[in-house]
Each structure stands twice: as structure tokens, then as C-alpha cells.
Computed example of a mutant assay.
Amino acid sequence: MVGAISLLFVCEFVGDVVARVVGLPLPGSVLGMVILLLWLASLKRERETLSQVTSWLTAHLSVMFVPAAVGLVAQGPVLSRYGIGLVVATTVSTLLTLVVTVLVFHWALALGERRAPLGREKGVVA
């Protein structure tokens, strides 16, 4: 189990180092996930321990939000000054993201149906 946890930390650390050294505009944790993905794709063996560790982390994900909540409380003066603007910006950007996601999904669905309508592929009789 320690090995699986170490693998997660090493991938995150290497991703962070690469992001800082190269100066990529990506968070190190994202590069760490890519490194982990490449590692797992290259090794074709049982990963039961890693599955157990990640299942435990996912089950206790709410604990991971405690530092963020403490950080918000610690930034009380900033939130009192810019809080309304942050809430408005977050709400507008979330709604805009939802609308764009729906539009892209409908576009992709229509494109897929134009190429191969459901039930009308070669050799399939509806």
C-alpha cells in the first residue's frame, strides 16, 4: 500500500518539477496525472493495491476540501471586499460553460447522425 501511495506522490512531484523547470502553463498535478497514465499504460500487471488506495481516497474526498475551506476563512477580508464579484463571476462562468457544453454535445450528436444515422449503418435493416 505504501508503494501505491508513493507512486501517486512521485508522479505528482515529477509533474510539478517538470512544469516549473520547463515553464509550462499547466499545473504540475495535471502533468503528474499524465505521467501516472503513461506509467499505468506501460505496465500490464495487476493494480489491486493502487485500486484500493484510490478507492479509499475517493471515498474520503470530502476531507480534501477542509484545507480549501480553511483557506477561504483565512481570506475573510478579501472575500468581504470582492466576494460578490467572485460569486457573480463564478456563476456566470459556470452557466456559460454549461451552455457551451450542451451546444458542443448537440453539434457532435448531429454530426455523428449525419455520418451514420442510428440503425442505418451498412448492412443493418431497421
Rank of each mutant, 00 (worst) to 15 (best):
L40Q: 07
A69S: 04
S80F: 14
G28Y: 06
A110F: 03
V124G: 00
M64R: 00
L86P: 03
A116D: 13
T91E: 14
V88E: 06
C11K: 05
C11P: 04
E121D: 12
S62H: 12
G15K: 05
L86V: 04
L86I: 07
R45A: 04
P117D: 08
I5N: 02
F65K: 00
V88R: 11
G112K: 09
R114C: 08
G112F: 02
G112A: 05
M33Q: 05
V99I: 15
A68D: 01
R115S: 15
L98E: 08
L38R: 03
T91V: 10
L24C: 01
S80A: 11
L118A: 14
M33F: 12
S51A: 14
Y82D: 13
V18E: 05
A4L: 01
A19Y: 05
P67A: 02
V78W: 12
S42Y: 13
W107P: 01
I5T: 05
T91P: 02
V99K: 12
L118F: 12
P25C: 06
L37I: 02
T58W: 00
R114P: 03
V14G: 04
V53A: 12
Q75G: 05
V70H: 00
L86D: 10
F105Y: 12
D16C: 11
P67M: 01
L111R: 15
T49F: 02
H60Y: 10
